[in-house]
Amino acid sequence: MLIDIHAHLFTPRMLKRHEFWGPFMKTKGLTVGHFSLGTTQPSKAKDDDEAEANLLARMTHAARRKLMAERGVDKLVLSTPSHAFMYWAGEFGTEYARICNDELSAFCAEDPDHFDFWAHTNLARPADAVKEIERAVTQLGAKGLCVGGANFDGLEAHSEELFPVWEKLQQLDVPIMVHGFNQSIYWGEKHTDDKFETTSIVGDCFDETLFFWNLINGGALDAFPQLKTYITHAGGMAVFQLGRLHDLNRVMAPDSRNQRPLMDYLPNFYFDLDIHTPGLRRGVVEVVGVDNLVYGTNFGGAYDHGDPTEGLGLSNADREKIRSGNAIKLLKLDVKAPVAV
C-alpha cells in the first residue's frame, strides 16, 4: 500500500479570491500579490484564462487518480500550496484559510477512499488559527495542520503567542506538516530581487530546518510533549546537521528554553525521503530510523524520481512502514486495504 502525504491542491474556488492577493494563475506563473512564481519554461497558454484552465485540469479527481494509478499511489493527503499561505495578507489570511479548508474538505468528501487533507490556518493571527483548527479537524475532517517553516508575519515557531496553537493540536492529537514557502512574497515589488528563486529553492529547506530548531529551542515540546511534526524535504537541513544542532544547542544558544538535550526530541518528528539521491536517503534512514519516516514526494509537482524507498536495502516490512504504516498511525487514517484507482 502507498500513501503520499505531501501533495498540493487548488480548486477553482481557491483562485481569484482577492483583487490583489488572488491567488491567480497567469501565463507568467502562479501570482500572489506582486509575486509571481518564476520559470524559464515558455508558457503553454495563450492567455491567463487558458493558464488557469491548464492548472485546474491537473487538479480534478480524475486527473489525480490517473496519475496515482501510474505511480501506484493508493491515497493522497492534500494541502494548500505553500505560495498561498497568506500569512502576510491580514484579515484576508484568516478568510482564505476558511476557504481552503472548505474546498479541501469538499474535494476529499467526493472520494474519501483516495483523498484526505491537511488543514490550513492563518498563524499570523493565533486566536483565529486556534478556532479554525478546531473547525477544520472536528467538523471538516482534517488530519493535521500544514504550516510554513518560518516568519508567520513576524511570529516564529518559538513565539509564545503560538503556544495556544500547539496546545490545540496536542489536544486534538493531530500533527503538524511543515512546508517552507517563498519568503520573497513578503518583499512586495522587491520580490524580483530574489533572482534565482532562492527563498523557495534554498529557502524552503532553511525554513523547515528553522522550524525544527525554533520549536525545540522555544520550549514548545516541553510544554506540549505529545506534539508531533512532519517536516517535508527530508527535514530541510535538520537531519544532515543534526549533530551540530545537538552539540551547539547548549553552548551557543544561551536563550534556549528546551529542558532536555536536543536529540531527545527527535521522536516527536517525522521526515520523508524527498531528496534526490539514494545515498542521502540511506543516510536519513540510518539517522532517523524507519519508525519516524513517511512517504511524501510533492506529488505531481516539479519533479518525479520514482519510489524513494527503492534501492535502500530496506526489508519489505520496513518499506511498508514508510510507504503507508507510519502515516496511517500518525494521521489516524481510515484505510483498511488498497483501493482501486
Rank of each mutant, 00 (worst) to 15 (best):
G22L: 00
Q41M: 15
L330K: 10
K16Y: 12
L280S: 10
A317G: 08
F269Q: 01
D274Q: 12
D74S: 12
E189S: 15
A337S: 14
L262E: 01
G93Q: 01
E132D: 09
D222R: 08
S79F: 04
F10E: 03
A317W: 12
S184E: 09
G301K: 06
L123F: 04
I328P: 02
N326L: 11
N298M: 12
I176T: 10
V73D: 05
E320Y: 00
Q171A: 13
L55G: 08
V137T: 03
T94A: 13
M14N: 06
F299N: 01
L242A: 08
I185D: 05
G188L: 04
T277S: 14
G313W: 15
N292D: 09
R13E: 15
N122I: 01
L227H: 06
F10N: 05
Y87P: 13
D274I: 03
T277W: 15
C108S: 06
A253M: 10
A7C: 08
G218N: 06
A127G: 12
G219W: 05
K336I: 02
R135Q: 04
A223F: 03
I3M: 00
V165K: 02
V285K: 11
R281V: 03
K28C: 14
P225I: 09
F240C: 02
E70L: 15
A127D: 14
G325H: 08
D264Y: 09
I99H: 10
H305S: 11
Q171P: 04
P254G: 08
V341R: 11
E160H: 15
P81H: 00
P308C: 02
R260D: 08
R125A: 15
I5C: 09
A327L: 04
V178P: 05
G300F: 08
G283E: 01
H34Q: 10
G296Y: 02
Q170V: 11
I216E: 00
I231V: 11
H114C: 02
E103K: 05
G300P: 11
G33S: 07
A7D: 00
V287P: 00
L15F: 08
P225Y: 07
K195M: 14
H120L: 13
R71M: 06
R250T: 13
N258C: 12
F299W: 03
F92E: 01
D255G: 05
A157C: 12
R282Y: 06
P81I: 01
K190L: 13
H83V: 15
R281E: 04
D4Y: 04
A62M: 11
H8W: 03
N214K: 14
R260P: 06
H158Q: 15
D272L: 08
T60P: 14
L280Y: 05
V290W: 09
D74C: 07
V339I: 06
L293W: 07
G235E: 01
M14I: 03
P175H: 06
S184C: 13
G90Y: 10
H114K: 07
Q241K: 09
M1Y: 05
